[in-house]
């Protein structure tokens, strides 16, 4: 006969060990989810076109955000003191949600010229194969033919109707949006099949990764003084407004 607790003496260390393991895991979670965005030095905001790097090393610093130029797709005042550069995936459900949030932000801060919204491409091929990239190309072709207005008409229209997560029937939706934007179908199709925007989209993706983006939506807010703020995921309107208020006070 032996006492149960003597038999299991070594297990008295299990609980502290379990707590240590759990703590280590939480620390690991923090590391993995935030090894990107780091301290930011102010970035220069220019109106000139900058050549884009083909495949920059991911630095995870938001100050690596490519300067906003007239080549970007901008909603609102291009010279707004606060710019929110969003890297988005047309088939991501959270991008759809954040698109609505950003439209609300622009309704509130766009008319006064305080905030500009810059849209860049970040199609996640592994999560939304083929379709996210195809819609990104389509949006660029819409912009090429119809300018900034056509781009936003296409983009707003797509996020309105997309079922997200690769469930959208792009064969039907894209031609419909092209028609609604008043674009020429033949010219659009030629552009769409040309592959001419593949490098541009790759450059956007590379810049998203370089600034610390590892999922979508990923955004970098640029304040009046050039300071940058990482905005990860679909943050609620209240948080974006609070961040705008902070950025405004920084100038």
């Amino acid at each position: 006969m032996e006492e149960n607790h003597n038999k299991n003496q070594p297990n008295q260390y299990l609980i502290p060990l379990a707590i240590v393991i759990a703590g280590a895991f939480v620390a690991g979670a923090l590391y993995f989810s935030n090894s990107g965005a780091t301290a930011n030095a102010p970035v220069a905001i220019t109106d000139t076109n900058q050549p884009v790097a083909a495949a920059p090393e991911p630095t995870g610093s938001t100050d690596a955000v490519r300067p906003v130029t007239s080549e970007d797709h901008i909603k609102g005042n291009p010279n707004a003191p606060i710019k929110i550069v969003e890297y988005s995936d047309f088939e991501c459900p959270f991008c759809k949600r954040f698109h609505d949030t950003m439209n609300e932000v622009m309704d509130k801060y766009g008319d006064s010229g305080e905030v500009a919204w810059v849209f860049r491409q970040f199609p996640l091929e592994q999560l939304h194969p083929v379709k996210a990239q195809a819609v990104a190309v389509a949006s660029e072709c819409a912009a090429e033919q119809g300018g900034n207005d056509a781009f936003w008409k296409f983009t707003d229209g797509y996020f309105d109707v997309t079922l997200t997560n690769n469930r959208t029937d792009i064969e039907t939706v894209i031609p419909q949006l092209v028609k609604e934007a008043g674009l020429d179908q033949v010219t659009f199709q030629t552009c769409f099949e040309s592959g001419k925007y593949d490098d541009h989209i790759e450059a956007d993706i590379a810049n998203a990764v370089e600034t610390g983006g590892r999922g979508t939506p990923w955004s970098v807010m640029i304040g009046p003084d050039g300071k940058t703020y990482p905005v990860n995921g679909a943050q609620p309107l209240a948080a974006i407004e609070q961040l705008i208020s902070i950025a405004k006070n920084e100038q």
Binding site: A29, S33, A37, N40, Y229, V231
Partner: peptide
Amino acid sequence: LPHVGLIRTL
């Protein structure tokens, strides 16, 4: 978790 970078920046 996703916002630690932002909070740290601030």
